[in-house]
């Protein structure tokens, strides 16, 4: 059945060999790159924080620290700063890291073990309640509700923000936990979050996860987070 091909370009065997070669190399490269990436994406430890080593995915003990998200002039985008005592928000100049603590549910001495347990429960809850089919996390998920990547840093939850005021709580973490347990009691818009039966422990764990997630280095996503205030939307 095989006609004699007249040119290499119409030879099935040439294309079959090329396809095999290309697929093989691409697959091997992907595997090598994956090893490298996995190495860089391991969760950090409390020791890293003590030694002031920056990790892409830090240790869960970051919940003991204040977290910022500021422009890094060298990398050209915003990066999370953990426990930065002197962050100049205008220039983004950071002169210290892993120093300034911040209480999380009244404590800033969560041990590595405790913090890990909290994060573990938080992640399980996030999956069990299917947060990702309304929200985006690290930008992936559904588009029915706000992105949660840096939700911990959202001005709406700060002490002057409307969301914290609405729940009547007097810290960010308490406000978030209160909201999560009864979201349909604290509507901000006609589109509300449903009641997912989140318990107080689950809520605390989820908030811990959100704080931890805000400290992940996402290469500057989302851009300009919370920086542009009072922009005018004339067409609204």
């Amino acid at each position: 059945m095989e006609n004699k091909p007249t040119s290499v370009w119409t030879s099935n065997r040439f294309w079959r060999r090329s396809a095999t070669w290309i697929t093989g190399v691409a697959a091997v490269l992907l595997i090598l790159l994956t090893f490298d990436s996995m190495g860089q994406m391991q969760m950090g430890t409390a020791e890293d924080i003590q030694n002031k080593v920056t990790k892409r995915i830090p240790s869960p003990v970051v919940i003991n620290y204040k977290i910022d998200y500021v422009l890094d002039p060298y990398r050209g985008h915003e990066v999370p700063i953990i426990g930065g005592k002197t962050v100049d928000s205008a220039t983004g100049k950071v002169s210290s890291k892993f120093e300034e603590k911040e209480k999380f549910f009244g404590r800033d001495d969560w041990s590595e073990e405790e913090a890990r347990a909290l994060i573990h429960k938080g992640k399980l809850t996030i999956q069990a309640k299917n947060c990702m089919d309304c929200h985006t996390l690290l930008g992936n998920g559904a588009y029915y509700a706000p992105d949660l990547t840096k939700a911990w840093l959202d001005p709406a939850w700060s002490s002057e923000g409307p969301l914290q005021a609405m729940t009547g709580a007097n810290s960010k973490e308490e406000a978030m936990a209160t909201f999560l347990q009864n979201p349909d009691k604290y509507p901000t818009h006609e589109r509300m979050m449903p009641n997912l039966g989140i318990t107080p422990e689950e809520a605390k764990a989820v908030v811990a996860y959100l704080k931890f997630m805000s400290a992940i280095d996402t290469n500057g996503f989302p851009r300009n987070f919370g920086k542009i205030k009072g922009a005018v939307d004339a067409r609204k």
Partner: peptide, 8 residues
């Protein structure tokens, strides 16, 4: 700037 408020 991608905030909660901006989203809504």
């Amino acid at each position: 700037g991608a905030t909660w408020e901006g989203y809504f």
